[in-house]
Design a protein around this nucleic acid. Structure first.
Lengths: 341, 341
DNA sequence: CAGAATTCTTTACGCGCGTAAACTTTTACT
DNA sequence: AGTAAAAGTTTACGCGCGTAAAGAATTCTG
């Protein structure tokens, strides 16, 4: 490994015996040069481990290889995990993923969008905050940059990929009704359309089954779901406001808070004898297998959502044309039976 | 808001009636121009909302305003939260934070370092993976780029900021001994120096108190702490290998797994009568208040660690000289009493 | 083997901005 | 008011690369 200080493509081209434009071509797409020249370049690459200046590249390329990823709340392992999978897939496809978190805050999302814009990305994958989003801003962004939205369906951009909340909620409502008292639905102030769709799906499923839907709406709009679930859960239990001994929570993080509330109020949760109540969630959150008792829930198909999102994005990016009609892809959830319900 | 398409600084300078070099000066440091000119520029900024091309800026600046952040595992809310705080502080100081996660994997950390390097950052804040790290690579990186390491002390770079494990473990060991059976120490294969230091601190604290240290070492090296805590916890409990009814876990995530294990094995956890065992953790992890029962633990001073890390980094960056001696700043933990111990 | 098709080399320009130097204008202060 | 210091303007260059055009070299046809 020679330690010659190759700094520019000019120098590298000279050292490898290939002209600079050809070397440039190689870095843009190694397959675009003849086999023999590619081998010569790669041999030189081993000797000097040169990397083109990323800023100069992006300044001159018509379109960068940057792909922006914006998730609403990175401290939620659900999104962290999705972000990780998206990153990997982008890298594998030769792109340069850049990750932003909105930290649950409107202003952070706006900042992320602006920063991302200045990176002149080739495309973007955005999971909007939801209620707190500046929808017009995101829409304008999506007008200029090929964009796929996921997780939270906000009628933005050409493509949305997410979960079939209607199906998945239907699944668990049916299960809960079949195996015990029909569930009531516990939600915090809905931060995004998923929450609203799930409530709607709950009502429809209950009515389909000839049951009376009961909704407990509690807490303020916040991404601190566990805390809200805990506080409001304790309150509801203390005030004996629970219309059913079975509680379906709008998502797993709320359910985790509710489980803690039940525990702290001395209620045993589970479906066995001696249990005072059942609690179920939605998402199959990474933590849900470690709760006490482990949480019964419906899984979201993370990897399918991610894979499809990225594929669709590449489609838009490569086609160059706008889709005439907005496209939605929804994946079904699967029942995950654990002990809490 | 005129929608004139101002694209370059040249155009913007013309529109604002200021020369381009002065405008450039303004964007580098708004305080470096006269008040009156700054106001004229900012007035124009409102009209045209122009932003300098980030690639052109970084290509020409001697040193960029980029600051790299590498955390070992972003799906851990502990790191997600730290990353968020670091980002904020960098932005407030006029820098451009770029976040990477090593995803618990050696290769991801290496990739992050290489990518970061090509971004020619002004500085970097790195929480190394630990055992899995390519230490030589990080060291070489730190030789070239002003670097502060945090969380995991690997003898890298000029400055480390982290927790005083010796003090914090001492604190909880003393508490546990004072209020019940002396604790045994439960750990998974140590992924980083913190784990090792904590074990050592446990042994020292126990000996100081005249007790016999008992260490349960279980599981493989992995960042999937909860799962390991659960699996190994169940095994240890089933095999009756617990030397004490009080278990101090190496960190909260392991403790969360162990709590689940105890629950699934039918052991009631807590310090009250009727409880079979006590479980304590370390870190005051965001989730630890939602476990059943809520987890007794020692807090790490997140925000102090973050603030100091960033401050020290700015010091190094601005001083321009290497510190003659490696500097370590450690923060004390505080006892967080909840119900699990 | 000739001719066509590819691929490479040479040459040149420009991206948008940082930065330096020389000069001019504005401000601060005696 | 006069003068020095500070801040602005003008001019010019270069960063490292993408990219285009024209010509030379190579490889692919039949």
């Amino acid at each position: 490994m020679s330690e010659t200080k190759i700094q520019t493509m000019e120098e590298f081209a000279a050292a490898s015996g290939i002209s600079r434009p050809t070397v440039s071509k190689y870095f843009n797409d190694p397959g675009s040069v003849r086999d023999s020249t590619r081998q010569r370049i790669e041999k030189a690459l081993l000797l000097f481990d040169f990397r083109p200046n990323i800023f100069a590249i992006n300044q001159n390329r018509r379109s960068t290889k940057n792909i922006g990823i914006i998730v609403p709340y990175l401290a939620d392992p659900f999104f962290a995990e999705m972000a990780r999978m998206i990153e990997r897939q982008c890298i594998d496809a030769g792109y340069w993923p850049i990750l932003f978190s909105s930290h649950g805050q409107r202003q952070s999302e706006i900042n992320a969008l602006e920063t991302l814009r200045s990176l002149k990305p080739a495309g973007a994958l955005i999971a909007p905050l939801g209620r707190a989003s500046d929808l017009e801003l995101i829409r304008k962004f999506a007008d200029d940059v090929p964009t796929v939205t996921f997780d939270s369906n906000q009628e933005i951009g050409e493509v949305f990929v997410g979960s079939n909340n209607s199906q998945s909620i239907g699944l668990i409502v049916e299960y809960l009704c079949r195996t015990g008292e029909p569930p009531c639905f516990f939600e915090t102030a809905p931060v995004n359309p998923n929450a609203i769709r799930r409530r709607k799906a709950y009502v429809e499923a209950m009515e389909r089954l000839g049951q009376t839907p009961e909704i407990i709406h509690a807490g303020e709009q916040s991404w601190d779901f566990e805390q809200t679930g805990l506080n409001e859960g304790k309150r509801v239990i203390a005030e004996r406001k629970l219309p059913s001994n079975t509680v379906l929570c709008s998502n797993d993080r709320i359910a985790i808070g509710f489980l803690a509330a039940a525990y702290q109020m001395g209620l045993r949760v589970g479906r066995g004898p001696g249990c005072a109540m059942r609690i179920a969630g939605h998402d199959d959150h990474p933590w849900s297998r470690f709760t006490c008792p482990p949480l019964t829930t419906v899984s979201q198909d993370y990897s399918a959502i991610v894979e499809t999102s990225v594929e669709k994005l590449f489609e838009i990016m490569n086609s160059g044309v706008r889709k005439p009609k907005r496209e939605e892809t929804l994946f079904d959830g699967k029942l995950v039976l654990r002990e809490s319900a």
